[in-house]
Amino acid sequence: MSEYQPDQTPQNEVVHDPYTTPPSSTATHNFEYSGDGVEMALLFLKNLLLTIVTIGLYRPWARTNLRRYVWGHVSFLGDRASYTGTGLELFKGWAKLIGLLIAAFLTIGLITRIVPFSAVLLPFVTPFAYIAVFALATYAGLRYRLSRTKWREIKFGVDKNKESTNEFFRLYFLGAFLSVVTFGIYYPWFKNSERTFLTNRSRLGNAYFSFNGISGEYAALCFKGIFLSFITLGFYLPWFIRSLVEFRLNHTKFQSSRFLFTLKGSDLLIYGICAYFGTVLSFGLATPWIYNWGLRLFVTNIKIEGAFDMAAVTASLSDGSSLAEQTVLEYDLDLGF
């Protein structure tokens, strides 16, 4: 013990002393972000060059590179998260979706050729296809990303089976339909119920997150934000965004703790202005630094308050390697939203 020299560990930039942080705690804990603008710029440059050279085929790998970097620089209680996904997985997911779309177009083409009258139905059918893709991308995408995220060697996950998938599709179709017929008024209710659905099925190991945000409150927040942003010519927008993120985090619980969001609206306004002018004046060259700054701003302002017991969090059996091959088939559709 006496030979340990903290000064010799420049790579470990954690603020917490990982050796004294107890596994369970009731205090407030920050998320930390240690990403560096120069490294981010190099990563952007590499991704950009390879994407251009490969006429866009490199995109899944570019996305993976970025996630690996960002995940690895987010830490909690002194321990970094890690991303175990690969570009190939994402590529296969995209290829699968494109294959699906081609098959869909061919089928539609065939049907309209055999039954020409059915073409009349197309304008009614295609929106459903789009909504289905969005729904799948939302649910399966989150599942993919969380299943590839590890912290303290414990995987995150999202529960998904046939019933829950059907339930989510119902929720999504209903939400999209009501949002359209109410000219968007229903949209906050839709988004809140989507969040409730997804958060309640998300977990770290065997420990579930939960979401108890009330749709009506969320909607009130949205309408107030839109109204104030409108009459202040957009200047309220940072406070609006802040309030939405805060609502989502405050109502997310993990064991007996909940999330807090401490970013100030004014800081977000300054960031927005700097980001806009920085991007324009540098002809986009400052983008990596601005992006990195934004990540730092958001991540470091997320806190967890209340009691949690990490020792009680165990690796979930359903994440075992025996299931991996089976689930990979439906996992890796991640369109990035």
């Binding site: 596994p23 209680l77 060697e153 190991g205 009680a312 690796a315």
Partner: peptide
């Protein structure tokens, strides 16, 4: 160093 046993979320 830090040891993660792969079973519990403890460092």
């Amino acid at each position: 160093g830090k040891y993660f046993d792969g079973l519990n979320a403890v460092s």
